[in-house]
Simulated scan of single mutants.
Amino acid sequence: MRVYLPLTLAGLAELHRSGEAGPAPLVAYAVTPALREWYLSGDQEELEYAAMSRAAQASLRLLAVDPEAVRRRVVVAADVPDRAAVADPDRAMDPEALAEVRLTEAVPVAKLASVHVDAPDAESDIAAAAAALGAADLGDDDAQFVVDGAADHELLWYGVQEIDHLL
């Protein structure tokens, strides 16, 4: 199963240094049955994009709680055994958790498929979105507009062998 792990650049550096993302349990995002049901007309590629977008939003949340982190969202795509990714049935119909899974084992670098990172020119918008996240969660429409603006920046694709260059 392809999963998308939300990280920061510091988290990516730690994954690179240690040779794995972990320890388990880890929150990741994937094409779950609930996501398929939500996007009835989506093909596999659209569903994968939706799962990755949710991981990018989770990466933004990681940035919001770490004021020292470089303001660039990071999502790592990995292939894990189906048994290692477990969806929470109690949250299956929560729109915020449609693609959320818990990984029951660490993810070795050898299982990574790609890395997705914001371009450096997105940093100011990502910083503003991370700063506005708390107010958006409390219902502030203006803050939500700023948070939604982060999605205007597509994450760039990198091969796993390019992690050194990214760091």
Rank of each mutant, 00 (worst) to 15 (best):
S53P: 12
V80C: 03
A97L: 15
A51V: 11
L112C: 07
A77T: 04
P95S: 07
A92T: 00
A58T: 05
E96Q: 12
D66I: 03
K111R: 14
A113N: 10
P67G: 10
R54S: 15
V115A: 01
T104L: 08
Y49W: 08
V65T: 13
L63A: 08
V80Y: 00
A92C: 01
R102L: 11
D88L: 14
R102C: 00
H116R: 09
L60Q: 02
A127Y: 01
S53T: 14
V115P: 02
M93D: 15
S114A: 15
D79L: 09
A78V: 05
T104G: 00
A85H: 04
P81W: 03
A110I: 14
A58N: 07
A77N: 01
V70R: 07
V109E: 07
A78C: 08
P95L: 00
A110F: 09
S59M: 10
L103F: 07
L98T: 06
Y49E: 14
A50L: 13
V109C: 08
A51K: 09
A55R: 06
M52H: 13
R91W: 12
I126P: 00
L62K: 06
D121A: 02
R72Y: 03
A87F: 09
L112Y: 04
L103G: 02
Q57K: 13
E68M: 10
M93L: 14
A110P: 11
A85R: 02
D125H: 06
A51H: 05
A97R: 15
A51N: 09
S53M: 15
R91C: 14
S124F: 10
E68W: 08
A77H: 05
